[in-house]
Design a binder for these strands. Structure first.
Lengths: 337, 337
DNA sequence: ACTTGGCACTCAGGAGCGCTGAGTGCCAAG
DNA sequence: CTTGGCACTCAGCGCTCCTGAGTGCCAAGT
């Protein structure tokens, strides 16, 4: 359907357009890439490519620019993820290794990704539901109030205030803490629900109401509503690419946690770098952007996802390389701690 | 220096310009506001106002627009903070009361403020150094590693991994926990440093090295480096006001924690609503924006600051009202928990 | 059957031009 | 001090014209 030269032409068009941001014409193509044919030949090829929907002219008598479909083909078959040099990888590694905190890791990851790609970076916090409980802590606040602190093995700390039905002494809290930790420590949060049945047996009858209250808070707020925080950075990079009037829309979309969740949630293959181009994002307002995302965390224990958002006119190979590298190292850093 | 009518004219100019975003001329002024004088008179007044530097014409034969100095006078003497209606206040209160979490309170505050003012909202987390310690928790991770969790009375939870010089048993950790809590609970974080001397006496000699390690981590990372997180929201509102080319600059500035800290840090009067107009912000890139900020928290215990950033052409009375109201209720909510 | 030079055609974008209308400053009279 | 009158200015708009990049097509060449 498309012979090798047509593909080469498409690749050249994408590359030129990405770097110059101007419709690329037949003449400049043969100049910049050393194709051994005349502009006229290229024009014929381009006519075919346009017919097939890979490129368009913004107006008659202008060069061609790639369509979403064109970018798609480019990404799928015409380009390879650009690997990072050893020096770059080392830089990434040391930058991330400087973090002392989950928050800090995430923050650094966002900054790094935004800077490397010169796009908007989006990083999801390691999801609770995929983490395991490391420790449960109960702190008495008042007679009938506890602060519940739950620490996961990814270093995430969640806290909630629990209102107790019965008042509870210091030692009762200590017992409950021991029971909870015995029960939950090391367990995946997704498995916690299954343990509900066991719990009553392990506490004294008159403490059961309180234990149940604490447990249900854990369930409701931490597991069921597995809220997953997302951090966005590098928004100023959006101003470089001129979204006609859609900049507002894009900014709005990026402020909606829900939208971002959908955006990252859609990619299914956890480990690979996924690209969604233009209208492939069925998120209203991001129809003119591309999203490059990947999961991070080890293969056996995926943690969450991260990626970049930018105009469809984007340097895919490099951006994909950056996303892959950052995902890899962020996963590594988190695995170590 | 400026008689009443000149002030009235300035006020009218500011109000009109804010609402229309077009230079305002003498004729439209007398029309919209029912001044009982002729346009010519107004022109004379305007000539004086311009001479004094309160207004300028963007080009000959256009209306006038206020200068920073003009806005300053307007804010200081020509306008009153617009109070919120009872209904609005109730709405704010219930919206904030729905939060179950410090993070959630802050997030809701940002969203609320951005929505009320249609500007960019900036909220600083309750600062650690102004909080008191509610509880210190130590969780053994490995033989020589502890997770230190510090819970403040503003509901903030901070965590760090501590590497211990000596290995330490379960019971040693328990003792250390008891000592630390005995020592620190209820103390302000700023006072923690003063307690360093007491500590060694309270632990057994062979545990002193570990205790010192934990304590120094508390000091170094929590007190000394009193990092104060800042959350920004409503960036899409910036697209409405057309910053000529400075939008990028503004967005960049808003992504720099340090810059934001300076921005909020500069206001000294904790309780009042402070306005910094245009070039009064000596932050590069925010020269064309105004910042309205206020501290929140009770008078005796200020927690942190919040505010909005927008174009100098801004509805100051309303924005100031919103900032004041939100600061008040956020402070209230945090005081309750 | 593909490639290529030639050629006519198209059209966005910039430059030049003139008009209009909002707005001004000034002045002389009220 | 206020006001109507008047001459002046100039941004913005619409108009036209021109240029140059780029195209599609065709007929000749390989």
């Amino acid at each position: 359907m498309l012979d090798d030269r047509k593909l080469a032409v498409l690749r050249a068009i994408v590359e030129d357009f990405v770097s110059t941001n101007e419709p690329v014409g037949s003449k400049s193509l043969v100049d910049r890439h050393n194709l051994d044919v005349s502009p006229a030949t290229i024009r014929n090829e381009m006519a075919v490519l346009e017919e097939q929907g890979y490129i368009v002219q913004p107006h008659t008598s202008a060069g061609r620019i790639p369509t979403d479909k064109g970018y798609r083909l480019f990404v799928d078959r015409l380009s390879a993820i650009k690997p990072f040099s050893a020096a770059e990888r080392r830089a990434i590694e040391t930058f991330l290794a400087g973090a002392y905190d989950l928050d800090d890791v995430v923050m650094r990851t966002v900054r790094l990704l935004a800077q490397l790609t010169r796009q908007v970076a989006v990083v999801q916090y390691p999801s609770l539901s995929k983490s395991a409980v490391r420790h449960v802590e109960l702190v008495p606040l008042a007679d009938r109030r506890l602060l519940l602190v739950l620490i996961t093995d990814t270093g995430r700390v969640e806290q909630r205030v629990v209102e107790l039905p019965d008042s509870s002494g210091e030692d009762a809290v200590t017992r409950l803490r021991a029971v909870l930790n015995g029960c939950l420590a090391g367990r995946k949060l997704t498995d916690v629900a299954a343990l509900a049945a066991d719990l009553p047996e392990r506490v004294e009858p008159r403490e059961r109401a309180n234990a149940a209250a604490v447990f249900s808070v854990i369930l409701e707020t931490l597991v069921a509503r597995h809220e997953e925080k997302i951090v966005v950075g590098g928004a100023s990079n959006l101003t470089a690419a001129d979204f006609s009037q859609g900049l507002r829309q894009v900014l709005e979309a990026l402020e909606e946690q829900v939208v971002l969740m959908r955006l990252l949630g859609e990619l299914d293959d956890q480990s690979a770098v996924t690209v969604r181009i233009g209208a492939e994002n069925d998120v209203l307002g991001l129809r003119s952007t591309s999203v490059i995302a990947a999961g991070y965390g080890s293969a056996d224990r995926p943690l969450a996802k991260l990626g970049v958002v930018g105009p469809t006119r984007m340097d895919y190979p490099t951006a994909m390389g950056a996303v892959r590298a950052v995902a890899r190292y962020t996963g590594q850093i988190l695995a170590e701690s």
